[in-house]
Design a binder for these strands. Structure first.
Length: 285
DNA sequence: TGATGCCTTTCAGATGATAC
DNA sequence: GTATCATCTGAAAGGCATCA
């Protein structure tokens, strides 16, 4: 049975997260050649390919997808163990902002991680849209924010990058040659911009049938079969389905989720927490 | 279509850890 | 102290995408 090396797993996860060996090399403080060799050794150790070439890019094989899930959990547990042994005691209260989508997906895992690493820190959670969270962050109203906004002016670390999908109710059918009915957030909204931009570039007519200020409102309208929306895969429900090019819709770009630290009035506890997370996630970008 | 740049892979040599 | 092994770096070569 192969024994998985922590450094090799971290390199593997970095390659997947960064999308290239060169970028991953910077994350793991090794040269590009060393990253190639680590991945090759990992694949040789397991006896199966984890990545396959698609042009210049890399794609995960089925085994790669399986290992990635385990690798993330192994690394998280490893980092928690290290933090616990190092024993840096962090106390206090931090105000953490998160968008609707993240509150149901990435946030629970992050809160669990916070609680394990820093059991004495009290977290006050603010749920709001990414754009509004960034405003609150700028004004020092919250200490940290999970956001899809790309704002390099604040210290940040990338939590993950995920594809964006067209989603509709299972029974919903797009009518060819008629404007695509859209269910979207009101402005400002990254997913709205992405969707409208993609449709415009593809010269596909559309109409905004329902606009909501909340994710639950969008879900309700999509569930009712009133239109389609563009969101990350976490928004997918059992009663939804994913639409794509076969339905005449253009592909959508990936969206990154960042954790930001306020530059104004950030509580020292938040800074400690952010630094600890940065150490376990890698350098901010 | 060729030039260019970026990225990955391969190779040779260096270095450090371990076993004897 | 020496041999062996694992892993690293840096250089070179080749593949692929982009652009004029």
């Amino acid at each position: 049975m192969p024994i998985l090396d922590i450094d090799a797993l971290r390199t593997f996860v970095s390659v997947v997260d960064q999308g290239s060996f060169a970028a991953a090399a910077g994350r793991v403080y090794r040269t590009q050649a060393a990253v190639t060799q680590r991945i090759q050794r990992l694949e040789a150790n397991i006896g199966r390919p984890l990545l396959r070439k698609v042009g210049r890019a890399k794609r995960l094989t089925d085994d790669g997808v399986t290992l990635l899930d385990y690798a993330r959990r192994i690394l998280a547990l490893h980092d928690e163990a290290c933090a616990s042994l190092v024993g840096t005691k962090v106390t206090g209260e931090i105000r953490l902002g998160a968008p609707d989508d993240a509150s149901e997906t990435i946030l629970p895992g992050m809160l669990r991680r916070f609680a394990t690493m820093f059991p004495e820190v009290r977290v006050v959670i603010h749920i709001a849209r990414s754009a509004f969270l960034m405003q609150s962050l700028k004004q020092g109203e919250i200490d940290m924010a999970i956001s899809t906004r790309d704002d390099p002016s604040h210290p940040r670390l990338r939590l993950r990058t995920a594809p964006t999908f067209w989603l509709s109710a299972a029974e919903f059918k797009l009518v060819r040659n008629e404007p695509v009915p859209l269910v979207m957030h009101d402005e400002p909204s990254l997913f709205r911009s992405i969707a409208l931009d993609a449709l415009e570039k593809a010269h596909i007519p559309m109409r905004l049938t329902h606009i909501s200020g909340s994710l639950s409102g969008i879900r309700a309208a999509v569930r009712a079969g009133l239109g389609i929306t563009a969101r990350s895969i976490e928004t997918l429900e059992p009663t939804f389905r994913v639409l794509g090019t076969a339905d005449g819709l253009p592909p959508l770009p990936d969206v990154s989720l960042y954790l930001y630290l306020a530059t104004l009035n950030a509580h020292p506890t938040a800074r400690q927490l952010f630094d600890s997370l940065r150490d376990s996630f890698g350098e901010p970008d």
